[in-house]
C-alpha cells in the first residue's frame, strides 16, 4: 500500500508516494537522489546512514520513510551553506579525518549532533559519541582530532 509522505529535506519540502516498507535511507537515496547518505550494514550498527531528524542524529536505515512524515531532515548534502562548508566538514578535511569517505557523512552528522549539545567535548566524550559509527580506514584518531578542531572553531564566533 502506498503512503504519501510530506518531508522537508535540507529545507526543501517534498511530497512523495512511498511503499510502506520503504526505508528512509532508500527514500533519500533512490527517490530524492541524495546519495551522500550511505548504507554500510543491515543491522543498524555502522552509522553510515546517519541523518538528522528535527536536529537529532538518527540512523535512516532503521526507520521507514513513512515514519518521517511531517519531519524536517538534514542530510550531509544540507550541511554546507552554499560554498561555505560546515566547520565539521572543514575540520574533517584539515585533520585528515577521512580516507575512503564512505563513513564520513554519517560521522559528520553524528559529530554535529554531539556539538549541538556539548560544544566543548573531551576526547572521551567524542569517542563515546561515535559509538554508533564504524570507520574502517582512519583508526578514529584523526576523526577525534577533527571534531575537537571543529568544536574550537565553532566556539569562536566568526
Amino acid at each position: 500500500m502506498a503512503e504519501t509522505v510530506n518531508i522537508t529535506v535540507n529545507g526543501t519540502q517534498h511530497s512523495k508516494e512511498v511503499e510502506g516498507r520503504t526505508l528512509l535511507v532508500h527514500f533519500l537515496r533512490d527517490t530524492l537522489g541524495l546519495t551522500g547518505t550511505h548504507v554500510g550494514c543491515d543491522t543498524s550498527s555502522c552509522g553510515a546512514c546517519t541523518v538528522h531528524i528535527n536536529g537529532k542524529a538518527v540512523k535512516s536505515c532503521s526507520m521507514l520513510a513513512a515514519q518521517a512524515d511531517g519531519k524536517s531532515i538534514t542530510t550531509i548534502e544540507g550541511m554546507a551553506n552554499g560554498d561555505e562548508l560546515h566547520p565539521l566538514q572543514e575540520s574533517f578535511r584539515e585533520k585528515h579525518g577521512l580516507q575512503c569517505g564512505f563513513c564520513t557523512p554519517g560521522m559528520i552528522m553524528t559529530a554535529a549532533d554531539l556539538l549541538n549539545h556539548n560544544p566543548n567535548p573531551s576526547e572521551t566524550d567524542i569517542r563515546e559519541a561515535l559509538e554508533g559509527n564504524i570507520c574502517r580506514c582512519t583508526g578514529y584518531h584523526n576523526i577525534v582530532e577533527a571534531i575537537k578542531d571543529a568544536a574550537e572553531k565553532m566556539a569562536v564566533p566568526a
Binding site: G36, E77, A80, Q89, C100
Partner: peptide, 23 residues
C-alpha cells in the same frame, strides 16, 4: 608536505560517487 587532500571536497559534502550511487 602535509597537503590537504583534493579528493575530500566531494566526500565531506556527500558528493562522492560510489557504484551504488550510480543510476
Amino acid at each position: 608536505q602535509s597537503v590537504k587532500r583534493v579528493e575530500d571536497k566531494r566526500f565531506i559534502t556527500g558528493e562522492g560517487r560510489y557504484t551504488d550511487d550510480i543510476v
